[in-house]
Structures are given as structure tokens and as C-alpha cells.
């Protein structure tokens, strides 16, 4: 056996026996690349995900809701940071990772290219978008790369309030005036299908899946996670009297799961390709924030240098 083959066998044995891979361990180059891509995409999603919600901070219907939304958006910033740090342990620089987002080279979750049109959208985002994200994140708490798994444990602890506050917003609106209930239903109608798309392409069309499963980066397939999400969410919608916008949705006694209608993958691909309602706006907002913050980063370094000089003198 060549050295690389031997090392690969040792690596796979570690993964198979559920030992975590740590930053200084030898790992196949494709494992490293695959992780950098996935973790940085995940980090970018947390960061860009602040934009649709930030849109409602100044217009939240009460001080309580405003404080909650602020805390949630602040959590998303923290989650982005945990993940950028995890990506950095794989040998990428923070600067390069951020540049890849700003230039449009790196992807983030397509869901954030949809607009938040009404207050009910903040409810739907928390309930559905965070709900779908949590399905994925709970699985990733057991991912094979140590720093990623540790970041996910932290994120999952914080994330559960996000989904609950969103569902509560929807529940309150659904019990309110007919206009409020209609607003909640409209938000559900617009966010349902994009939320299902968040789990990614079907297993048959998922280019990175087989390797990710072998390396235990992923532990459950896109389709499995999507089905669990649907099964749980349909019940939650019933409890608050809202209707899932899928005429084909039907309980299947034989499989003990819901059957559901077809996802419009053409729409998904178009949004991923950059043609969603807000792709340009989101990237422009990130670039503006980054450029407007340049003087702060420079000033902080100048101040640190000045303090260090004084201390030395």
C-alpha cells in the first residue's frame, strides 16, 4: 500500500469507529475541501440570514417582539462566527472566506433570497426556516469533524428559542383578527416550498452526498430530513389552524409518513443561480456593510499598535 492509501485507511477507520477528526489530524484533501465548502456556506447563511429579519427590527409590533428579534439576530451573528472559526481550523483564512461571499463565489442558503414582506414572515421564518435548519443542525452535532460538531452543539442549544418564537408569532396571529390570520396563512403559503428546498436536491441528484455520508460529515440524507420536517410541521400547522399549501399532502398509513406534492426544482435552481427576488440586494448589503466597516477595522488595529507602543516605552 502507498503511504496515502494507508493514511486514508487509517482515517476511514477512525471515522467508522466514531472518533472525531481534529484539526491537526491527517485528512484526505477532498474531506478538507468538502468541509471548508460546507462550513463556510453554513456560516454565510447565518450572516446573510440576518438581513431578512433585520428588515423588521425597527417595525416589530411591540417592544417585547423587538427585543426578541434583536436577540435572535444577534444569535445568528454569533452562529456565523462559530462556523467561520471552525472553517478556519481547516487552514483557510477568514479574509478569504469572507471575500468569497462578497464576490459571489461562495453560496449561502437560497432561502434568504426571498423577501420578508409582512410581520407574519418573521413568524414563518422562525418556525419554518429555523425549523428546517435545526433538523440539519441536530444531525450535524454528530458530524465527524470535531470543531464543526462542537460549533453545532452550541448553535443547537441557542437555536431552539428561534423556532419557538416564530411559531408563537404565527399562533398569535392565527388566533387574531381575520386579517391577521390571513397574513399568517399568506406567509406560510410563501415560505413553505422554499423551506422544503432548504434540505437540498433529492438524494438522487445530490452531488456531494455519497462521500459526505461515507465520511460521516452528513449522517442523514436530504430526503430523510425533509420527510421528518414535513411530518412534524403538518401537525404544528393543524394545531394553530393554518393550512399547508400543498393539495397533494396526505397521510399515508402504510409508510406512516405524509405523502406530498412535487417541489419546483426549476425555481430552486434559478434562485441558486442568482435569480431569486433578493440575491442582488443581499450581496449588495453585505458588501456595503463590509466596506463601510473598513475604517473601524483599520482604526482598531492602529489603536492596538499605539497601546502596544506605549506599553513598551
Amino acid at each position: 500500500m502507498s503511504d496515502t492509501t494507508k493514511r486514508e485507511a487509517l482515517f476511514q477507520a477512525k471515522v467508522d469507529s466514531e472518533q472525531k477528526i481534529e484539526p491537526k489530524d491527517w485528512m484526505p484533501e477532498k474531506y478538507r475541501k468538502n468541509l471548508i465548502r460546507q462550513i463556510s456556506q453554513h456560516a454565510h447563511s447565518e450572516v446573510v440570514g440576518m438581513l431578512p429579519e433585520g428588515n423588521w427590527i425597527s417595525r416589530a409590533p411591540s417592544l417585547k417582539r423587538k427585543a426578541i428579534l434583536l436577540a435572535k439576530v444577534q444569535d445568528e451573528a454569533g452562529h456565523g462566527l462559530y462556523l467561520y472559526s471552525a472553517a478556519e481550523t481547516l487552514g483557510t483564512s477568514r479574509e478569504q472566506t469572507i471575500d468569497d461571499l462578497l464576490s459571489g463565489k461562495a453560496k449561502y442558503s437560497s432561502i434568504f433570497n426571498y423577501p420578508t414582506l409582512t410581520w407574519a414572515d418573521i413568524g414563518a421564518v422562525g418556525w419554518l426556516v429555523d425549523g428546517a435548519a435545526i433538523m440539519n443542525q441536530v444531525m450535524l452535532c454528530r458530524t465527524s469533524y470535531g470543531p464543526y460538531a462542537r460549533a453545532m452543539v452550541r448553535i443547537c442549544k441557542e437555536e431552539s428559542f428561534h423556532q419557538r418564537q416564530g411559531y408563537e408569532i404565527m399562533a398569535v396571529l392565527a388566533k387574531g383578527s381575520p386579517e391577521q390570520k390571513e397574513m399568517a396563512q399568506d406567509a406560510l403559503n410563501r415560505w413553505w416550498w422554499p423551506s422544503l428546498m432548504m434540505f437540498g436536491p433529492t438524494d438522487a441528484n445530490s452531488p456531494h452526498s455519497a462521500e459526505s455520508m461515507k465520511w460521516k460529515i452528513k449522517r442523514q440524507s436530504n430526503d430523510e430530513l425533509r420527510q421528518t420536517f414535513i411530518d412534524r410541521t403538518v401537525q404544528q400547522a393543524e394545531v394553530i389552524g393554518l393550512t399547508i399549501p400543498d393539495p397533494d399532502l396526505k397521510w399515508n398509513e402504510a409508510t406512516q409518513h405524509y405523502d406530498w406534492g412535487a417541489i419546483d426544482w426549476a425555481e430552486f435552481n434559478s434562485v441558486v443561480a442568482g435569480n431569486g427576488p433578493c440575491n442582488k440586494e443581499r450581496l449588495a448589503a453585505r458588501n456595503k456593510a463590509h466596506n463601510d466597516g473598513a475604517w473601524v477595522r483599520e482604526a482598531a488595529m492602529a489603536y492596538a499598535a499605539k497601546k502596544a507602543e506605549r506599553k513598551a516605552a
Binding site: 462559530y82 482598531a300 489603536y303 492596538a304 497601546k307
Partner: peptide
């Protein structure tokens, strides 16, 4: 618990 970037120890 993790890492972060900052200009100086105080920050």
C-alpha cells in the same frame, strides 16, 4: 470554547 478575531486583548 472557540476562537475569534480582535485587534487587542481588551477587544
Amino acid at each position: 470554547v472557540g476562537s475569534l478575531h480582535a485587534a487587542d486583548p481588551q477587544m
